[in-house]
């Protein structure tokens, strides 16, 4: 996992640790979350049982602009946008309707949007922010760690903020020393919670 600077899975059972390293890698890769994690330490003790994941997040600027997924061509009083990725088409149309009005926006086919009589230059349109995927980042991270953690571990405590996160899960009531364990695991990465 080259994108992550520090990635360790700690477990009293070495084979179990190896499998969980693979599971963590697969799940984060599937959810496209490797790009947002800088450091990650996972600790599993099946005897207690306890699952702890602590990590540091990368500062990400993932705002998606019109220019990122559309080719903007001004021609004879109209601006033609050729869309290469449909993912952000709906939010883009919503913004155009708000900004220019429905009369000035036309979509003749799936991959083409035409703006008529719009008082905006090429650069201005290209720089319109359409979406910010980081808004749903915490939700995605929690879902991913729920997939990674052993399934019966349904009692959870999670703290996610802009830089750091911790995720603890168990099938029993969480012990009082959980905060201490989290601190220990952060220390292993050379960080403080």
């Amino acid at each position: 996992m080259p994108a992550i600077e520090y990635f360790e899975v700690e477990c009293p059972e070495p084979l179990g640790a190896e499998y969980y390293r693979q599971i963590t890698n697969d799940v984060l890769l599937d959810h496209n979350l490797l790009r947002v994690i800088h450091k990650l330490h996972v600790y599993i003790d099946p005897k207690v049982p306890l699952f702890v994941a602590v990590g540091i997040l990368k500062k990400i600027t993932t705002r998606v602009c019109v220019g990122d997924f559309a080719n903007v061509n001004p021609l004879e009083g109209k601006i033609t946008l050729v869309i290469s990725d449909e993912t952000y088409l709906a939010p883009m149309l919503r913004i155009f309707w708000q900004k220019f009005g429905k009369d000035h926006v036309d979509q003749p086919d799936r991959f083409t949007v035409i703006l008529y009589d719009v008082k905006a230059d090429l650069k201005e349109i290209e720089e319109i922010i359409v979406a910010d995927p980081s808004e749903s980042l915490y939700k995605d991270l929690i879902y991913a760690f729920r997939c990674i953690a052993p399934e019966g571990f349904r009692l959870r405590s999670e703290i996610f903020n802009k830089e750091k996160f911790s995720f603890v899960a168990s099938e029993n009531t969480l012990a009082e020393n959980v905060d201490e364990i989290i601190r220990e695991k952060f220390a292993l990465m050379g960080e403080v919670p």
């Binding site: 049982p49 399934e151 029993n172």
Partner: peptide, 15 residues
């Protein structure tokens, strides 16, 4: 083959 999925299969103590 039939897949038999348990209602309370996962976990350790709770299985």
């Amino acid at each position: 083959s039939n897949m038999v999925s348990l209602a309370r299969g996962p976990g350790k103590r709770i299985a």
